[in-house]
């Protein structure tokens, strides 16, 4: 049996909060005549700045062993079982055969193929500028590897850096980022 509607509350108010910026009355015409309504088109725009932050869940999926390897000071790559084509950055399927790739250990040395010194950067990396970003050739891999190179003077950037031998170093406090490995110029005596 349908209940009779209770009497609506005509005094209802939405609960207001006192957090964040609170604005009471922005400048506005006291009298809204036709001229005042027309003049609203000439107002400067209202621009507000607000925070925008999320916690984000990111899975490394089939590439996960590569990050586990870095925490053990090992550089892994992926290899096509048929052609032997080897990727220095993880890739679960070969681009040319479509095969699922296998894991292989890569050497911890490389050669600078291309580089830059970032004097500016994305906000996240601004505090780290200037830094050297490089693409490395890794022995036994057919593709390049993007990394940071430290131990070079950023103010002395030179094309001569291309071809330089470098060796991997690993963060002791791994962050599960590709920067858990980075490279430094290879010690000529150790070579």
């Amino acid at each position: 049996m349908a209940k009779k509607n209770p009497k609506p509350n005509t005094e209802a108010r939405r609960e207001e909060s006192l957090d964040g910026t609170i604005v009471f009355r922005l400048p506005f015409p006291k009298k809204l005549d036709a001229a005042a309504l027309q003049a609203l088109k000439e107002l400067t725009p209202i621009v507000k700045r607000q925070p925008y932050h999320v916690e984000y869940i990111h899975s490394y999926g089939q590439d996960s062993p590569w990050f586990a390897a870095l925490t053990n000071k090992v550089l892994l790559g992926n290899r096509d079982p048929e052609s032997g084509y080897t990727y220095a950055t993880p890739r679960g399927a070969d681009m040319y055969t479509g095969n699922e790739t296998d894991w292989v250990q890569l050497p911890s040395e490389g050669v600078i193929h291309a580089f830059t010194v970032c004097h500016f950067g994305s906000e996240e990396f601004l505090p780290e500028t200037p830094f050297v970003l490089a693409l490395l050739e890794i022995e036994g891999a057919n593709t390049l590897f993007l990394t940071r190179v430290v131990g070079l003077d950023p103010s002395q950037a030179s094309l001569d850096w291309i071809g330089m031998k470098v060796q991997a170093r690993y963060l002791r406090n791994a962050k599960l980022k590709p920067t858990d490995v980075y490279f430094v110029p290879l010690n000529a005596q150790a070579e």
Binding site: H58, F115, C118, L146, T147, R148, K177
Partner: peptide, 18 residues
Amino acid sequence: VSFDYPVGGFYSGYYAMM
């Protein structure tokens, strides 16, 4: 975002390497 961005994601840097 797994392998390039965290190393120093910056387009001017990418083009500079090229």
